[in-house]
Design a binder for these strands. Structure first.
Lengths: 121, 121
DNA sequence: TATGTGTACTATTATTACTAATACACTAAG
DNA sequence: CTTAGTGTATTAGTAATAATAGTACACATA
């Protein structure tokens, strides 16, 4: 299911993270499906379990999977993922609005920018 | 004018960059004023000229100073700095708007967010 | 042409990131 | 309550990167 490319300069754990993100977003892995265990995947890829652990920890931080101690890792709901992403973007939006007024970009300009963008779409 | 804090864990060049940013933004150093030469400041701080060079290169990249080969480094115009910052923010704003629609945040929500923000200020 | 300036290249050192080895802790099933 | 399967924490070794320094080059101007 997962393969490491040693010609790829990116760290192993990062490759694993990206592969699983794709599998989850494409729906190849479905909600609540069990992920391969840390040990079994480590064995399969002939690498250390801690490297898998690092990848899974990141996937969990980013909301792609959830962990149940002693039971395993499972695919999270796509809906939750999208919600989380939305929250992130809205927060960035707020931060940027604050930064914009701090440098003295007039409010009208911001309003115009958004409404123009909306019209274009 | 500039002092290195060896208890500070940040790299030397970064400390120098930040000190000069503050001095420039506060107006202690005024437009077109000559910066200390790479060598003289290196001598004063008892560090390698290349470390100063690295700091100056970054200040130039960020628009705080401009360089004339063989003559020295000089303080840039504050106005230019603000303009540049504005451009950056507007670009981020555009990127964020695109990202927002990609995750399916409705346009109305974006418009509301901005107009509410404008009212609050 | 001499002196002061920035710059490029290389080497060394320090710091951080990555991976691995090992031991611990939780869960469920027999 | 023991065993097999699971995630987790701690530590150590190695690899990669960032920071700094040494040195030599190139440009500007008096």
């Amino acid at each position: 299911m997962i393969q490491i490319d040693y010609k790829d300069s990116r760290p192993i754990y990062e490759q694993i993270v990206d592969k699983f993100k794709t599998l989850i977003l494409k729906g190849v892995l479905s909600t609540d499906e069990k992920m391969p265990s840390v040990r079994s995947l480590a064995l399969e890829l002939a690498i250390n379990p801690n490297t898998i652990q690092k990848a899974y920890a990141q996937l969990e931080r980013e909301g792609f999977i959830y962990t149940v101690k002693g039971r395993g890792n499972f695919v999270a709901e796509k809906e939750d993922l999208v919600m989380e992403k939305k929250q992130e973007i809205l927060e960035q939006f707020r931060q940027l609005l604050i930064a914009a007024t701090e440098v003295g970009i007039p409010k009208e300009e911001l309003v115009n920018l958004v409404s123009n963008f909306v019209k274009e779409q």
